[in-house]
Amino acid sequence: MEQTQSLVLVITTVETASDAGVLSRALVGLSLAACVQIDGPITSHYRWAGEVQQSSEFRLMIKSSLSAWPELRDQIAKLHPYDEPEIIMTFIDDSSEGYRNWVIDQTT
């Protein structure tokens, strides 16, 4: 499969359902994401500023194309309410042809 037809899954978390909705609508509206699913609340445990923390968050699972990834990453960083947001991208190795075509169509 050529790179322009590759799909990616991007994950980030935010503090509130409202923040998740705002970010999701923006990314789909900008045609950088074909679909964003929101899970939560989830509980996150992490170290921040030298202290172990625990907080409730909402996880966004963003389906997009590899060609949209650089701008998607930049927009998440720009629009995200956290000082240092989690932005993780992983390649989708395989999908149904129809779904892949739909994601590519929505993000180009």
Rank of each mutant, 00 (worst) to 15 (best):
E51L: 13
E2N: 15
V52E: 09
N101S: 15
S96I: 08
Q53A: 03
E57D: 13
T12D: 02
D39G: 06
W102D: 09
R59W: 00
W69E: 08
D93A: 07
V52T: 12
R25K: 15
L79D: 06
Y46C: 04
Y82T: 02
I88T: 09
G40H: 11
L7G: 15
A20W: 10
E71S: 15
T108M: 07
G40F: 14
W69S: 06
R73T: 01
S18G: 04
W48G: 02
Q5Y: 11
S64V: 02
V36L: 10
S31P: 02
G21W: 00
E86R: 12
G40N: 11
E2P: 15
L72Q: 10
I87P: 07
E51Y: 06
S44H: 01
A20V: 09
G50K: 09
V28L: 11
L30P: 00
F91T: 06
G40P: 12
L7T: 12
M1K: 09
I87L: 06
W69T: 04
V22R: 13
L72K: 08
C35E: 08
Y99I: 08
D94R: 13
T12S: 10
L27P: 07
Y46N: 06
Q5K: 15
E2Y: 11
L66A: 13
R100P: 02
S44K: 01
Q106D: 03
Q75G: 09
Y82K: 06
A68F: 00
D74S: 15
C35N: 10
A68P: 00
V103M: 04
T4V: 05
G98H: 14
I11Y: 13
T12A: 02
T4W: 05
P81W: 10
T107G: 08
I76C: 03
T43E: 12
P70M: 04
R59N: 00
V103D: 00
G98C: 08
Q37R: 13
S64F: 01
L32G: 04
T16V: 02
V8M: 13
V103L: 06
V22H: 11
E15P: 00
G29K: 11
L23C: 10
S64D: 00
I92T: 05
T16L: 03
I76E: 03
H80P: 01
Q5D: 15
T90R: 00
S6L: 11
I87A: 05
Q37K: 13
F58V: 01
V8W: 10
Q3W: 09
L60N: 04
T108V: 12
T90V: 11
